[in-house]
Computed example of a mutant assay.
Amino acid sequence: MERSLTYIALFAALIAALGLVPQITLATGVPITAQSLGVMLCGTVLGARRGALAAGLFVALVALGLPLLSGGRGGLGVFVSPTAGFALGFPLAAFVAGWVVEKWQASIGIAAFAGALIGGVGVLYLCGITGMALVLGKSWPEAALLVSPFIPGDLLKAGLAAGVTRGLAQLRPGAVLSRAG
């Protein structure tokens, strides 16, 4: 139990730290950040339940006003902005990424890539595009077009998450809780 709490807090901090990586803001106003990589790693390393709890802790801290999102954003106003769906989707994305790694018996690298891709890109985009459409008053396809420039970078992050998870599994197999019995 104590170990799980430590990992949950550590990975919530990882998401926050990845928000410090300088962001690149496109014309749509949505920044390219490394935080989604942290969400992917929450799932692929910690597993579904712990990964969702870590991402949920991060979202709760943002809601409390801590400026943890990229660009130093935090507070309840974040949840009515165009990026609200992405922030609110972090726990679900981490859960799905972890669930895929836990259930799919492929090698850890392949399962982690699939989990990061399905949860950290697919589910996160589903939540983010839906939120963007609602906040901006656009149709779902119009909102999807706004985020399409981010897809190549997120595919790269999914590959990076798989590589990190695979490397961690090789160096410290017990630390990859998504595969620890």
Rank of each mutant, 00 (worst) to 15 (best):
L57S: 05
A60E: 06
L64R: 12
I108L: 11
K157N: 06
L92T: 10
F86D: 07
L57W: 10
F90H: 07
I8Y: 11
A111K: 07
T44N: 07
L46G: 03
L155V: 15
G163M: 13
G72Q: 11
P82R: 01
V78G: 01
F11E: 00
A158E: 04
L146F: 08
Q170P: 00
G153M: 02
L61P: 00
A175T: 14
L160K: 01
G56C: 05
L46F: 09
A144C: 03
L37K: 02
G174D: 15
F95Q: 04
L177G: 09
A54T: 03
Y125C: 02
G122I: 00
S70A: 15
A87R: 02
G119C: 01
V101D: 00
T25M: 13
Y7F: 15
G159C: 10
L171D: 10
L171N: 07
A63R: 14
V135L: 03
R73T: 14
F150P: 00
G153W: 00
L26N: 04
W104M: 14
R179P: 02
G65R: 11
T28G: 07
G89N: 06
A87N: 09
R179M: 06
G137N: 07
G120A: 10
P91Q: 12
P91K: 12
V121F: 13
L57T: 06
C127N: 08
R49H: 11
G181M: 11
L20Q: 12
G109L: 11
V78P: 01
P141I: 05
G167K: 09
A84M: 12
P31D: 06
A162L: 09
L145H: 11
L168F: 03
L117F: 12
A13T: 11
A60Y: 09
G29S: 12
A111F: 05
A180G: 03
V147K: 00
S4A: 15
W104I: 15
T83K: 08
A93S: 14
R172S: 13
A111I: 04
L124I: 13
L69Q: 05
T28R: 03
S148D: 10
V30K: 00
F58M: 03
F79R: 04
M1N: 13
G128I: 03
L57Y: 12
A84F: 06
A162Q: 02
S36Y: 01
L126V: 10
A94E: 07
F113Q: 00
A60Q: 08
G167A: 15
P22F: 05
A9E: 09
W140G: 01
V39G: 01
I118F: 07
G137Q: 07
C127P: 02
L68W: 03
S107Q: 13
L88I: 13
C42K: 03
T28L: 09
A52W: 06
P141G: 01
V45N: 02
L160C: 11
W140V: 15
L136R: 14
L53D: 02
Y7A: 06
L146H: 04
L76N: 06
L160R: 00
F95S: 01
A55H: 07
D154G: 06
A13D: 07
A106C: 08
V121S: 00
R179N: 03
L88G: 15
L136V: 01
G47V: 04
G167W: 14
W140L: 14
G72S: 10
A17E: 01
G163C: 14
L46H: 06
L37N: 00
F79E: 08
Q105S: 13
L14K: 00
V100Q: 01
L156H: 06
A93C: 08
G43E: 09
P91W: 03
V176A: 09
A9D: 11
V59K: 04
G72Y: 12
